[in-house]
Amino acid sequence: MRSITARMFVTLDGVVQGLGRTDEDTRDGFAYGGWGPAYNDEVMGRELGKGMAKPGDMLFGRRTWEDFISAWGRRTDGNPFTAKMNAATKYVVSRSLADASAWENSVLLRGDAVETVAKLKAEPGNDLSINGSAALVRSLHAAGLIDHYTLLIHPLTLGTGARLFDGPAPLTRFDLTGSVTTPKGVIIAHYSRH
């Protein structure tokens, strides 16, 4: 059975929307896009690199997958993250996507997220990681399918925006398995299901 790790960039007040760019996700009038890059530093890069160095496949919701195509899928910059993202098998969960041919090594999981991901998780294969895709994370968490979280907790509050757990989340206990604080104040916390 595969394990699933969700890697989420989050503010102190739980916002996960619009991390990278001002135009990344403006749904519901969100005006604070691009809040994350000011906190990038060498320690964060090194810690993210450790996760990317492990063998594994990636799991996306449709919206994040489409955003990542433009952010990563067309780059030719020699960045090791770019090479890893493009080479990895990428599963995209969607009810509306016609096919997944827009980004190499992508596989469409059509249908209900919980059902299709539970089936994929039960099959032999590489472990799965989710980067972003908050709606997917929320539904998989509610179904008990998330095994690990890596939360990159940024030292700011936004007061508005989509949160990691908008609404009730079921009682789930996790153990802290490691943490690192970056020079810019981001706490990178690793949790595993208890």
Rank of each mutant, 00 (worst) to 15 (best):
L158W: 02
S106D: 07
L48N: 09
L171M: 13
S192Y: 01
G56W: 00
K54L: 15
D166V: 02
G51P: 00
G61T: 03
L158N: 09
P37F: 04
R173E: 02
V15C: 12
S70G: 11
P168Q: 08
M44K: 02
F174C: 04
M85Y: 13
D77C: 04
S129R: 15
D112E: 13
N131D: 01
A98H: 05
F30V: 07
S106I: 10
Y91R: 02
R63G: 01
H190R: 14
V186N: 11
R7H: 11
N86M: 09
D77S: 07
L108E: 11
T116Q: 15
R95C: 01
L108G: 12
E123K: 14
S3Q: 14
K184C: 02
L59D: 07
E24C: 09
M52R: 13
V107L: 04
D147G: 12
R193C: 01
R63I: 15
F165P: 08
L59E: 07
L109P: 10
G34Q: 12
G178H: 03
A162L: 06
V93E: 12
S192D: 10
G144H: 12
R7S: 13
Y191F: 15
I153R: 09
F174A: 04
G167M: 04
S101F: 00
M58S: 08
D127L: 05
D13T: 08
A87W: 01
A87P: 01
R75P: 07
H194G: 04
P80F: 06
L97V: 05
H154Y: 15
A71D: 06
Y91I: 10
I130V: 14
H141T: 14
P183G: 05
D166C: 01
V93A: 13
K90Y: 09
G111Q: 10
D166S: 14
S133Q: 02
M58H: 08
R173V: 04
S3K: 15
S94K: 06
R62Q: 14
D112A: 12
V117K: 12
G111D: 09
G36I: 07
G29E: 08
L136W: 09
S106V: 11
L156G: 05
I146C: 07
